[in-house]
Design a binder for these strands. Structure first.
Length: 339
DNA sequence: GAGTCGTGGTC
DNA sequence: TGACCAAGACT
């Protein structure tokens, strides 16, 4: 008796899953946005796109992706690259350890990219999300991804009230996505769920009337879609003041390269900040720049140098600056400079 | 587990 | 406008 009930419940649940998957797939095929990384089956290109897309919007990635692939069209080109050349290409995209890990991985694989989740997961810069994304999209491995989009969709779909920042809750959501996964089209299923999160199941004011699976959504049924997902704990921003010096001599500017072991933007070039021996002149302008939870107010000054450049600093001609990886603060400071 | 890493879009 | 947050990973 109990067995019959279980079997009956299981059968209905299976039908519901098929309906959901079919509706999601049909919606995705009709409504997906066109991106260059969706027009290729090349694992190298898919890998590069997934690294760039980490914590970065697709619209921001697109121009970088095209430029990156022109400069490093295949695994060999990337493995041969100079780190400075790579950083210059990545400059402005953020999270620069991604670029260094990408290059390290390219050198480490010895010409052959992995084909499985476990293989990908072993590479530097490739965590659970990226390993699942590449393995499913490029190789058809039936493994569900869990990114911010999928976490939000699954939390609403299953009315999950736990804090989605907690690893335990995230693993539960990933497990539910895995149970739902279309094993015949895992890559497409994963992308469909992410696309739904990115364009319909929005963080605030989700467009439930346009959602192909709202009929399966517990949060929608209960009318609590705006209360989910639960995210606790936020940092309060820290405000800081920075003065940068624009020291010009013979059509060159005084800059330094940040140390290779700096935790923040190693290898990037920047203007001097509060250095002995540099006399600040008139204020050029003031602007703001945020790095994670730091909110900087930056004042740029015309300045003059007494004697030789301080340790680490050198004169670089304007014409050469453009081909160096500059910190964004430096780019912003110089963007209003008379070149 | 908590902190850290960039930048730009969105409301 | 300020808070949120995006196809996360690493320490």
């Amino acid at each position: 008796m109990l067995t019959d009930l279980d079997a009956e419940g299981s059968r209905k649940s299976s039908i519901r899953k098929k309906n959901l998957v079919a509706a999601l797939r049909a919606w995705y095929r009709r409504n997906r946005r066109r991106f260059p990384w969706r027009e290729t089956a090349d694992p190298y290109r898919i890998w590069v796109s997934e690294i760039m897309l980490q914590q970065t919007r697709a619209a921001a990635v697109e121009p970088y992706y095209e430029r990156f692939l022109r400069r490093f069209p295949d695994l060999q080109a990337l493995a041969r690259s100079k780190e400075a050349e790579l950083l210059e290409c990545w400059s402005g995209l953020g999270y620069y350890s991604r670029a260094r890990n990408l290059r390290r991985a390219a050198q480490q694989v010895n010409g052959v990219l992995p084909k499985t989740y476990e293989g990908w997961k072993a590479l530097p810069g490739v965590g659970p999300y990226t390993a699942a994304a590449v393995a499913s999209i490029a190789f058809g491995e039936p493994v569900a991804v869990l990114d911010g989009n999928v976490a939000r969709v699954m939390a609403r779909l299953t009315h999950e009230r736990g804090d989605v920042r907690l690893p335990r809750v995230r693993e539960e959501l990933r497990s539910r996505a895995q149970a739902l996964l279309d094993r015949r089209n895992p890559g497409e299923f994963n992308q469909a769920l992410m696309e739904l999160g990115a364009t319909v199941c929005l963080p605030r004011n989700p467009l439930c009337l346009l959602c192909p699976i709202s009929g399966h959504c517990e949060a929608f049924r209960l009318g609590v879609q705006n209360q989910l997902p639960v995210k606790l704990g936020g940092r309060k921003p820290v405000r800081e003041q920075i003065a940068v010096a624009v020291v010009e001599r013979n059509r060159s500017l005084l800059v330094r390269q940040r140390p290779a072991d700096a935790s923040l933007m190693p290898g990037f070039w920047e203007l001097p900040q509060d250095i002995d021996g540099i006399a600040l002149g008139p204020l050029i302008r003031e602007f703001r720049h945020s790095i994670t939870y730091h909110e900087y107010t930056i004042r740029s000054f015309r300045a003059t140098l007494r004697g030789r450049p301080p340790a680490g600093f050198q004169w670089v001609p304007w014409a050469k600056l453009a081909s160096l990886p500059l910190t964004t603060i430096t780019r912003k400071a110089l963007s209003h400079w008379a070149w």
